[in-house]
């Protein structure tokens, strides 16, 4: 499986109603290049799955989409990522409203060492989204409900979020993200630390969230990609090899590397 020089992405990386469009994105960690000229559209209200062998740059690319890479000193991003017509890498853009619009859920559940209520209320509080206590209560309840956690925690909203089980913690993190009411949600292997039952719950949740949000999800599991996404993008060694509808990728992949990956020849 050799590296392909200047690979032009196979399939359909672009779409008509793009929420986010990346153009010629390159990422360097110091001297080392991690992403090579990736161009990709993410459509409104679609779920796009990013797959590929580990270390191929899925997380790196995902973190470009809300400039989380800014927190890593040595990380340099070039190219253009346009959200609703504006380049988010424009020096004038402030990352705060950007990240409020493009939320993120991480691989390992990372609830803050606060109560469940305060975890969910964190975003609305810092952004001043609620005008009153009642307002805030409502946001918290709705977010927990949407995340499918309300029934389980409504009696212990004021106990620490870190006391929940792994799956519950991850749903709490999702609730925390949707409490800000973003437009796009980025998820980096949100189920990799969870058991199958918790995973099923999250997958169900993603399906529901699609109505309202645009979602990009990195996943290691091809079954998961097949279950939750409409389009799938395959990354290999920092390059975007192929993007197609999920059905097509898993039934008739265009590129041999994609085929090799989904048939389990490496990963």
């Amino acid at each position: 499986m050799s590296i392909i020089e200047n690979h032009k992405t196979d399939g359909k990386p672009f779409c008509d109603s793009a929420k986010l469009s990346a153009r010629d994105v390159c990422v360097h960690y110091g001297e080392k290049q991690a992403i090579f000229d990736v161009s990709l559209d993410i459509g409104k209200n679609e779920v796009i799955a990013l797959i590929g062998p580990s270390g191929c740059g899925k997380s790196t690319f995902l973190r470009c989409l809300n400039r989380m890479n800014d927190t890593i000193d040595i990380c340099k991003v070039t190219g253009e990522i346009v959200l609703d017509g504006g380049n988010i890498y424009d020096p004038k853009v402030d990352v705060v409203p950007l990240r409020a619009t493009v939320g993120m859920v991480f691989q390992k559940p990372n609830p803050f060492p606060k109560t469940i209520y305060d975890n969910v209320a964190y975003g609305p509080r810092i952004h001043g989204l609620a005008t009153s206590r009642v307002d805030l209560d409502e946001i918290v309840e709705k977010s927990l409900q949407r995340a499918g956690l309300w029934a389980e925690v409504k009696d212990r909203l004021h106990s620490p979020g870190t006391g929940l089980s792994g799956g519950q913690q991850q749903r709490l993190c999702i609730a925390r993200t949707i409490a800000v009411d973003p437009e796009v949600i980025l998820m980096d292997e949100p189920c990799s630390a969870l058991d199958p039952i918790a995973t099923a719950k999250i997958e169900e949740l993603i399906d529901e969230l699609r109505e309202k949000y645009t979602i990009a999800i990195v996943t290691h599991s091809m079954q998961q990609a097949a279950r939750v996404s409409q389009r799938t993008a395959y990354f290999h060694l920092g390059q975007l090899i192929e993007v197609n509808s999920t059905d097509k990728v898993f039934t008739t992949p265009e590129h041999q590397l994609t085929e090799a990956y989904i048939t389990g020849r490496f990963g």
Partner: peptide
């Protein structure tokens, strides 16, 4: 852990908000 800071930045918190409301309490 960096993951707590990431969680806060991922929600759009500024640096000082992250420090005051997540890092220090943790």
């Amino acid at each position: 852990p960096q993951s707590l800071r990431d969680g806060s930045y991922g929600l759009g918190a500024t640096k000082s908000e992250t420090v005051r409301q997540v890092v220090i309490p943790a």
